[in-house]
């Protein structure tokens, strides 16, 4: 098998330069430079309407970029799309199936569209993929009788029909029950163990935090952060939290140390928690000492690293409304 279609190696499974996609006047994706390392599990985060699915469509050649360069598995798109796609499996914006066909028949059909796979193994591969997503018992049911989560599982099975170098999953856990969600995590892990790069979009931060090695954050079409998960966490703010009944005194001390409390929450019994971003040059123990010296009754004190959620909210804003 030396002359099968190849995607050349590069360190990056996906690489874009100044990728922009506009719909009429609206810019859905604005000048983004993605760099997805090979072998990584790459979380693609962003609020609703931030351009995740649009980016994925461009990466898969479904939509053309308005400007910019796209490289997938070391090949230039859209020119080398036909060489790249056999190595890519995808779930894009929810599953899409023929409602009047069974789960098995749907997968057989989609697999037969792929000219680069052997038809002799088709049936087995379909059965294996169905088993992998736990649909064996519903395999012969018509898809119109599937529940939301069953359709989602079938969509994931479709991405797993053949071993791929890159698997793109757009919100894979949408509609899945807790077991299904957990199995998706296992699945992603087993895929990376096989050497597959997994590019997964989501807004479930806990999900991403548990399964990804790298992440990027989109906001209103722009890429606002990207890197390994550790780097991203480090970029976030560390915070101190003080639990005290003397909140006014505590605030005064914190301010005198250059810390600005930005969150105050009364938790009953006269106790209040104050939180403030921690500056790098302030040692936490010095803060406690200063508080105690000022006669503030400290009932609790903690230093908290930032979670992905803090970072996400910091980068994409508190507002609930979709941008644009």
């Amino acid at each position: 098998m030396t002359d099968r279609p190849r995607a050349s190696t590069a360190e990056l499974a996906i690489e874009t330069h100044a990728l922009t996609k506009t719909f009429g006047k609206q810019t859905a994706v604005n000048n983004i430079d993605l760099a997805v390392p090979r072998g990584s599990v790459f979380g693609f985060l962003g609020p609703n309407g931030s351009g995740k699915t649009t980016t994925i469509r461009v990466l898969l050649g479904l939509a053309s970029a308005t400007s910019g360069e796209v490289n997938v598995l070391g090949e230039e798109l859209p020119g080398r799309l036909a060489q790249v796609l056999p190595h890519v499996g995808a779930l894009i914006e929810g599953p899409g199936f023929y409602p009047f066909l069974s789960g098995t028949a749907n997968l057989l059909r989609l697999d037969s569209a792929d000219r680069f796979v052997t038809s002799s193994t088709r049936r087995k591969r379909v059965d294996d993929a169905l088993e992998r997503v736990g649909l064996t018992h519903a395999a012969n049911k018509k898809v119109k009788a599937y529940s939301l989560g069953m359709k989602q599982r079938l969509g994931i099975a479709n991405a797993l029909l053949t071993p791929r170098d890159l698997i793109v999953l757009d919100e894979p856990t949408n509609g899945l029950d807790p077991q299904g969600t957990r199995e998706v995590r296992h699945l992603v892990r087993s895929l990376t163990a096989e050497g597959t790069t997994v590019f997964v979009s989501s807004h479930l931060l806990a999900e991403i935090e548990q399964m990804c090695t790298h992440a990027a954050v989109m906001r209103a079409g722009s890429l606002v952060a990207q890197g390994s998960l550790d780097d991203l966490r480090r970029a976030g703010q560390t915070r101190v939290r003080v639990l005290t009944p003397d909140d006014l005194g505590a605030e005064e001390v914190l301010r005198s140390l250059g810390l600005v409390p930005d969150h105050r929450e009364s938790i009953g019994d006269g106790d209040v928690t104050l939180t403030a971003p921690l500056m790098d040059d302030r040692a936490p123990d010095a803060i406690v000492a200063a508080l105690v010296a000022a006669g503030v009754r400290v009932r609790g004190f903690s230093v908290e690293g930032s979670t992905l959620e803090d970072l996400f909210v910091a980068l994409t804003g508190e507002g609930f409304d979709v941008v644009q």
Binding site: D3, R4, A7, T9, L73, H87, R115, T121, R164, D165
Partner: peptide, 18 residues
């Protein structure tokens, strides 16, 4: 490079399956 996809064929089939 050798892509991972071990079941990929050397040459595309004629496409009669579709």
């Amino acid at each position: 490079t050798a892509p991972l996809s071990g079941t990929l064929r050397a040459k595309p089939t004629a496409g009669w399956a579709l």
